[in-house]
């Protein structure tokens, strides 16, 4: 996919936006905190209902096909040699992991129930859409964005493919396709490496009041989407009803994807690795930054107090 955004347009937009930010009032007004009216949308995934038919996988591909990369080869040579070329354009039909062309896949898991019965489970896996997504917050160019409804997505017209979002993601969700995107118009040999792709929760459908494709297509009603408070209540009720377990409520400080399983998540046996995310407990990766933000409020006050203290000490000595 060639980048429809030019360098001039990118810089022009950025300078305009920067001006708005610096004016102060613009930026102050721009901050919209989530409140009850703008409560984030959360998806509940009832693992016990999933039959692994992959209807959701193919619905996702169909609904988002127009967003996929169509890179032109050969790719520009990148320096130094350690920069990896990640090309999935000839393997678009892969469905057993996350790729730039497959934003949702079915993870096969096995487990033993409390009654000692061996069971198989199938789990739809995709971006968790964290409440405070590190992929968005740590993106150095603002290429990843979070909508007011809580979904996070990567702007393929701006992303340079540095893969920081993947390294910052506790589940390594975003996947890179080399040879596409804005970096081709900048310094393709020395900076950037394509575009990162992941589930954007069908934002174009949500904007029209429709449901994400994976939810619409599911014949077993595995997924339910709704307001955070409603879905959390529903997840807790469901877990209570099946004597089950919840994943995603507290992971990474809370996510907008809640899984409910009939067996504990730490007892699930499944393949993990590249493009195959885990289901381990995850600490809030942004917590350190949020805590240090308090230090930034205290530090100038301490500095000012030290200067005032020095002044009065000198005045006493002079007197």
């Amino acid at each position: 996919m060639s980048s429809p955004i030019s360098r001039r347009h990118f810089l022009k937009t950025s300078v305009f936006a920067a001006g708005t930010a610096i004016v102060g009032t613009g930026a102050a007004n721009a901050a919209i905190t989530s409140d009850e009216e703008k409560e984030s949308l959360v998806t509940l995934i009832d693992i016990s209902r999933c039959i692994g038919c992959e209807e959701c996988v193919y619905a996702c591909r169909d609904a988002n096909a127009h967003k996929f990369a169509d890179p032109k080869k050969p790719f520009p040579k990148m320096y130094p040699d350690r920069v990896p070329v990640e090309d999935w354009s000839d393997r678009r039909d892969v469905t057993d992991r996350l790729t730039p062309y497959n934003w949702l896949y079915i993870q096969y898991a096995s487990a033993t129930t409390k009654e000692g019965e061996n069971i198989s489970l199938t789990i739809p896996r995709r971006c968790m859409h964290c409440q405070n997504p590190p992929c968005v917050k740590l993106c150095p160019w603002g290429a990843a964005k979070q909508e007011k409804n809580g979904l996070s997505r990567i702007d393929s017209q701006i992303c340079l493919g540095g893969s920081k979002c993947k390294k910052a993601c506790p589940w390594d969700i975003p996947q890179r396709q080399t040879g596409t995107g804005l970096y081709l118009d900048l310094l393709p040999a020395f900076a950037g490496n394509g575009v990162m792709y992941k589930c954007d929760r069908c934002y174009q459908k949500i904007d029209k009041g429709e449901q994400p494709a994976c939810i619409e297509a599911c014949p077993e009603d595995v997924q339910t989407i709704g307001k955070r408070s409603d879905i959390i209540k529903m997840a807790k009720d469901l877990a209570k009803e099946m004597d089950g377990y919840i994943y995603g409520l507290d992971e990474n400080g809370g996510t907008n994807t809640i899984y409910v399983s009939p067996v504990p998540f730490d007892q699930l046996v499944y393949d993990t690795g590249k493009g195959k995310p885990h289901m381990h407990p995850v600490k809030d990766t942004m917590a350190a930054g949020s805590n240090l933000a308090i230090a930034m409020v205290i530090a100038p006050i301490a500095g000012a107090a030290a200067a005032v203290g020095k002044y009065y000490r000198q005045m006493k000595e002079e007197a």
Binding site: V15, A17, A21, I22, A27, A30, W141, A293
Partner: peptide, 27 residues
Amino acid sequence: ITGFFMVVKNLSGIYFPHGVVIGLDLL
């Protein structure tokens, strides 16, 4: 000034328009 807004932006539950975030990063 830009750093202040970037720290605020990184707090949970805070949403800045996309253009503003890019502007802050570049500035």
